[in-house]
Structure formats: C-alpha cells, structure tokens
Design a protein around this nucleic acid. Structure first.
Lengths: 248, 248
DNA sequence: TCAGGCAGTTGATCTAGGTCAAGGCGCGGC
DNA sequence: GCCGCGCCTTGACCTAGATCAACTGCCTGA
C-alpha cells in the first residue's frame, strides 16, 4: 500500500480547511504558524485503506479533497458505514490511540494531517482549538444520531432519499436556491457503499433508485450523475420534518 | 409539569458527577468553587419530559440518579431513541441553543445542572473543562456509531442481546469478574422503550426476550429482573467481536 | 371486592426487504 | 473488434420481523 506525500508545495494555506474551517478560525497568527510546523499532506488512491480498525492512529487530519468512509465490520462480514467524510471534515481522536473503525478512501483523497502528539500539545496551550474541536464533534454526534433514526425507522425508499438529500445539500449547498431548487451532482458512492451506509443490500438500493427515477423524484444520467428537480420533493420522500443538520 | 428543585442541602459535592467524573477532575480548587456557584439540582418524576425537541435549552447537566432517554420522533409517530443517559452521563450542548431531541425521564431522575451562559464562560477560562467535554463527546460519538452497527446490521436477537450487554456492563460494572461472570440487574426500560431503542416493535422485543430466556441466555424473574448466567455468552449472542465501548 | 388500565405475552397472518440467480452495459486491455 | 470484468439492474422466491388481535397478570383506586 503506497501512501505518498502529496505535493505540498502548491497547496497554499488557503486550501487547508483545518486552519480556515476546521479547527482554528479564531486563533492568532503565531498559533497558526505553529500549526504549520506540524502539518503535512498525504494522498491516497481510490480504494486504499487509510487506517484499519484497531490500528494505532498517530495523526489527526482533515479532508482536503476526495471522499473517505468510516466503516465497522462484524466477523461474519456484515458491514455498516458509520460516517462519510467530505472535504473539510475532520478525522481523528485527540486523546485516543486506536481507530475504532476502518477509514477508507472511496475516491482519490488528499488529507491535511497533524501529528497527534504535537497537536495535543497545541490543544493544551490554545483553548480555541479544543473548543472548535468540541463544536465539530457535537456536529458529528448530531449527525450520527440523526442517522440512527434513518437506520432504525425509515423505509428503504426513505433511506435512499435521505442519503441523496445529504449529499445534494453538502455537495451543492452553494448552488441551492431557497425553495424548491434544482440540484445536480455526481454520486460519489457505489450502490454497494450506499447499501453499507443505509443498512440495506445493494439490490434493494438499486431497486429503490429505479423507483425514485420512475417516479420523477430524481433524474439519472448514466449510473452516477443525478439531477434533483425539486429538493423539497426529495426531502419529502426522505420523511424529514425539518431539513435539520445531519451528515458525518 | 411540576419540576421541583431537589433538596440540594444534603447533596454533597461527592454526589455530583460533573465535578468528579464528568467535567472537571483536573481543575484546581478555586475553579471547582466557581462551578459550585452556578450549580443547582433538579428532579423529575418518571415519565416527565425534561426538554422538548426544538426547545431552547438554557442549561447543561449531568445525571445524578435515575435514567433519561433521548428520542427523535417523525411526524407520523415513528420513534427512535438515540441515547440512554445513566448516572454520570452528560446532557447539553455548549454553544447550541436548541435540543435536537426530546429528553425524557424514564425513571425518577435527579440532574445536576449548570446554567449554560456561565458554564460557557467557564469553558473559556478553564481549558480542562473543554478538554474533558471533548473527551466525553468523543465517547458518545463512538457509542452512537457502535449503535449504528446494531441498528443497521444486527438481527432482532442480536439487538436485544446488545442492549442487555450494555446495561449489564454499565449497571453492574463493579460486580463483573474478568471472565464468564454472572451479573444481575433490573431492566430500567419497558418493552416499548427497548423497541424504540432497537428499531423494533414491542412484540418482537417480547418474543426475543422469551427466546433468550428459553435458551438460557438470561433468567427472568418477573418482567424486569434479569440474571445473566454468563456475560461471555451474552456478548456472543450480541455478535460483538470485542466488548468495545458502546453506550450513550 | 371488583373494575379498569397498563405492561407484557403469544398466536396468526402479511409484507418489505433479503437472497439467489440471470443478464445488461460500459470500459480497458489485447 | 472482442474478451473479461466491475458495476448495476431486474426477476422470482423466501423469511425475519411487522401487524393485528386475543389474552394474562398485576396494580390501583372506588
């Protein structure tokens, strides 16, 4: 498994979401400079495993580009995806050694990493980092709990619609107009990965995608390009009352 | 809905887990004293709702005694429990205004509360609080993700066993011997609440409880008192590889 | 003492989604 | 151009768990 250091030269600080979105938006400049000293970039190819469940994880990181998933696997092979990492999302557990799940790159992936020890050191001296991290972790917790409702109580059709709504909102949030807007995006997941996320089989995913297409909720070009004529309609299919914050 | 202030007089600091377990184990004593100034106790009767989903929540708190649940409800009434709060667990979201779910007392409940504004103030000045809170939130996130596996991929029997294992471990952790230990405890949940937690119907919960009893995995006295002859066996039924950290 | 109600159990039946199996479609390699 | 291989779709059938319904036991209040 070849993990190469990404060409960091032309990655300006602007492109690192840790600094600007993920951790330290409120820190003063000399603290930012210290973050720079322990920062490095890594890239992975689609399909590569970033960390194995149980492995020691000696860094924390945020996604610069590409998509990664967090999955848990039972001994008999049943799998459940427990998180989806999109650009600017954070991975890693200050204060913990091992990862409780596999982290896998589902597309080509670039991450901005910080060695854990020095990062933890910075947390001690720079309170804003811990506070920002707490905020982010609370967001993830909300997302995980929202997803528990999806997994425990929604029908297959509602599950699919929920997932598409999340991706649409995230992927296309800037393009969304206030109400009933049309959105288009490329699905970054295989049917199998969708099934793993939703607690379904890939056949059921496929069938429900076909059904949503037949009912005009989505328009499919090829297998992966999706146009949502009405975001409102999609939310409706997802059975959500509010469009409240989910997403890992 | 009468919410009474609990008789705080004979609640010594020892009985408040916020200070000793939940938030501030590493703080110096003058900081502890400041926590005392903004602390108050509240008690709720079984069945009372502590906070409604969407409501403003102007405090953070930890459970002193009793049990509370966090649930989400869809418009059509489908319900999913997303967290179980046992003594020493923490509720509340520094930096957030509303609760995203109902918090309900399932037994008589005493909570140790801190008004949110001053608590947030303390977080700014006392870095250990934010760090401790981050640690706790990461634990909850792990628990939530573990539960996603339960909801998405486990069979009804495995779900029940998983829930019983969690409660047994939590409720009886001190009594557990290293291997194959016997544990006994009282179920703090109705069959319906179990169903809401597990994404099942109460009939299925009842049937699987009967099945586990028939197979000798558990011994039932009355409806609620449970003896687990072998914790190992229970874990096995739950389908868990490790007994890794779940629980909300 | 008895009526009513809540919690739980158990049985009969139904169905959403899983399982197994047979293709289809696009794409890179030869 | 054709082969082989992922990825996806569709069909036929099956089953775990939902649904509907009857019934038990226990506790509470009149």
């Amino acid at each position: 498994m070849s993990v190469s250091l990404a060409p960091a030269g032309h990655m300006t600080c602007e492109s690192c979401p840790i600094r600007h979105r993920a951790v330290c938006a409120r820190c003063e400049s000399d603290e930012l400079a210290r973050l720079d000293e322990i920062k490095y970039y890594r890239s992975y190819e689609a399909g590569q495993t970033v960390v194995w469940s149980g492995d020691r994880m000696d860094f924390v990181a945020s996604v610069v580009s590409g998509i990664a998933t967090l999955t848990q696997t039972m001994e008999d092979g049943r799998r459940q995806m427990v998180g989806l990492l999109l650009p600017s999302d954070f991975v890693g557990r200050p204060g913990r050694d091992g990862s409780p799940y596999d982290v896998v790159a589902t597309t080509d992936l670039v991450m901005c990493c910080f060695r854990k020890k020095p990062f933890e050191g910075m947390m001690e001296t720079t309170p804003h980092i811990a506070q920002r991290l707490l905020e982010m972790t609370l967001d993830e917790l909300d997302a995980a709990r929202e997803w528990m409702l999806v997994l425990g109580r929604k029908t297959a059709r509602e599950k699919i619609a929920s997932l598409l709504a999340i991706i649409a909102r995230r992927d296309a949030s800037l393009k969304l107009t206030s109400a009933g807007g049309q959105v288009a995006f490329d699905l970054p997941l295989t049917r199998e990965a969708m099934a793993d996320y939703l607690g379904l089989t890939l056949e059921t995913v496929s069938r429900q995608m076909s059904a949503l297409k037949a009912d005009g909720v989505i328009i499919l070009e090829g297998k992966r390009h999706i146009t949502v004529p009405s975001y409102e309609r999609l939310m409706d299919e997802a059975g959500d009352d509010s469009d409240g914050g989910m997403l890992a």
